[in-house]
Design a protein around this nucleic acid. Structure first.
Length: 464
RNA sequence: GGCAGGGUGGCUCAGUGGUACGGCGGAGGACUGCAAAUCCUUUAUUCGCGAGUUCGAUUCUCGCCCCUGCCUCCA
């Protein structure tokens, strides 16, 4: 049914929805800016992971062969500083943080990108690009030896963020740096001070500026021109703007064709960020909520809209997931995984929602609707294999309902043997029609957060 | 100040030129010994405010108010 994919997506470059057509038929090259690995990821990072994971899954569902590249910035001032503070080596710090990143991403149910390049592994490509920029007069070596990009040389500067160079200058929040010919110029290669990590280059020992790595690695993996480039809204300027300036000046090509930017995670209507200190790490949150609940919470809002983070919102996400898991439980673990060709069973409405700029709230509405229909069929004693297939397909595409229903409801430190014993005792009491005693047992368990459900096939329990 | 994106029921979140999706919550009902779960019904004469275009606007245009973000590192 997903024949003739009519995928439409909002391109930040044109600030409008556009029909998606890949550069090479049947293939999609997608680059997403990852993280600087000097600390644990917070919920804002989680959103990027989840948003582009869903996009990745949907592109594959549409039949595209997707090359999904997400980088790790593993050389940077903040990393150097943090490593020094902790008295560990740069490699130890970045290695540990990359490991933590993967653990978080895995917990959130995100598929691994096809490539996860590290900046330190692509020095040659970056140096080559800088050389090209110098050769074409888009870059210069300053008095201090740093290599800088001459922003005014690039005619299209500001096209992505809608900025006007002259207004940027007058904004004057840009540091006035004596070595810069123009305040807007940014560093491509930074000379190393003693003790700092350094790589050999035609300009001396040093390290790359932040922006050059993404231009070099995206082009390196996907070609000078590729389909999708994504990241958080805050990367639009200056990072993505600079990426465009670098890549297009160096290659002369088009660079990324579609730019996707996800909205922020807010707390009390304020952006969650390191500098404001109002952030929660993914691991802090997942100690209190299942990671899938966090994922569900993110799916409930369109990826470009701001997302307000709060326990109340997570509670709502959990309640919704509980509903869906209740259906999964009724269907039964044995038949849940017997899914046929997914493309044959994804409901029209779901596909339409996803094809409309990855509208997950709308897609979720379809999932809830099918869940309801399935419950109705189950109530009527029907098998409803088609509805089950549809529900499995949709939940797999969104990356939810990935746990066993029993595990979902019975997680935590509970003594299931003891609970089963109580249930047996209550069963006998009910059989004897001693409801006072039966209710007492139920109340006792309820006090511990264990809820009993009497169904046609016996009594089951769940932890709330 | 410049630029961008928003203001939809108690909360949350979609959406459309012809009176509004889903979730949470509330109310009533079915089921149940009673519950829980599930299902059914119901819960915005209304989509920030004021004009305009139109047969008709929440959806298009203009103005205003308010919120957030970017303009420096930031997902």
């Amino acid at each position: 049914m997903t024949q003739a994919p009519k995928l439409t997506l909002f391109n930040s470059l044109s600030r409008s929805k556009e029909a998606f057509t890949p550069l090479h038929a049947g293939k999609v090259g997608m680059y997403v800016c990852g993280v600087t690995v000097y600390d644990y990821c917070h919920v804002g990072h989680a959103r990027v992971m989840v948003v582009f994971d869903v996009i990745y899954r949907w592109l594959m569902q549409l039949g595209f062969d997707v090359d999904y590249v997400r980088n790790f910035t593993d050389v940077d001032d903040k990393i150097i500083k943090r490593a020094a503070e902790r008295g560990v080596s740069i490699d130890e710090l970045t290695g540990a943080m990359i490991e933590a990143f993967h653990a978080d991403a895995d917990a959130l149910g995100c598929l691994r990108p096809t490539h996860e390049p590290r900046a330190t592994g692509h020095m040659h490509a970056m140096i080559a690009m800088i050389e090209s920029l110098i050769a074409r007069n888009y870059a210069y070596v300053s008095d201090s030896g740093d290599v800088l990009y001459a922003v005014r040389r690039f005619a299209g500067y500001g096209q992505l963020s809608g900025k006007n160079i002259d207004e940027l200058e007058s904004g004057s929040r840009v540091d006035v740096d004596e070595q810069k010919r123009d305040p807007l110029d940014f560093v491509l290669w930074k000379m190393a001070k003693k003790g700092e990590p350094a790589w050999a280059s035609p300009w001396g020992e040093g390290r790359p500026g932040w922006h050059i790595e993404c231009s070099a690695m995206s082009c390196g993996h996907l070609g000078e021109s590729f389909d999708i480039h994504g990241g958080g809204m805050d990367l639009k300027f200056p990072h993505h703007e600079n990426e465009i300036a670098q890549a297009q000046a160096a290659n002369g090509g088009k660079f990324a064709r579609y730019w996707l930017h996800n909205g922020f995670v807010n707390i009390n209507a304020e952006k969650m960020s390191k500098s404001l200190g109002n952030f929660f790490t993914i691991r802090e949150v997942t100690e209190r909520y299942h990671p899938e609940t966090l994922r569900m919470f993110m799916l409930g809002t369109h990826y470009r809209s701001p997302l307000d983070f709060s326990d109340a919102a997570l509670d709502v996400a959990k309640t919704g997931l509980d509903r869906l898991y209740e259906t999964k439980k009724r269907v039964g673990a044995s038949v849940w995984y017997e899914i046929k060709d997914r493309s044959q069973v994804v409901p029209e409405g779901f596909a339409a929602a996803m094809n409309d700029d990855f509208n997950t709230p709308e897609a979720l509405a379809e999932l809830f609707e099918v869940s309801r229909q399935l419950n109705r069929a189950l109530d009527a004693g029907e098998a409803a294999a088609g509805l089950t297939d549809a529900m499995i397909a949709m939940s797999d595409l969104l990356g939810v309902l990935q746990q066993e229903a029993d595990a979902w409801f019975q997680s935590g430190d509970v003594d299931s043997v003891r609970i089963e014993a109580h249930i047996e005792a209550r069963k006998q009491a009910r059989k004897d029609r001693d409801f006072t005693r039966a209710d007492a047992i139920r109340d006792e368990l309820a006090a511990e957060g264990i809820v009993l459900e009497d169904g046609p096939s016996g009594t089951s329990w769940k932890k709330v």
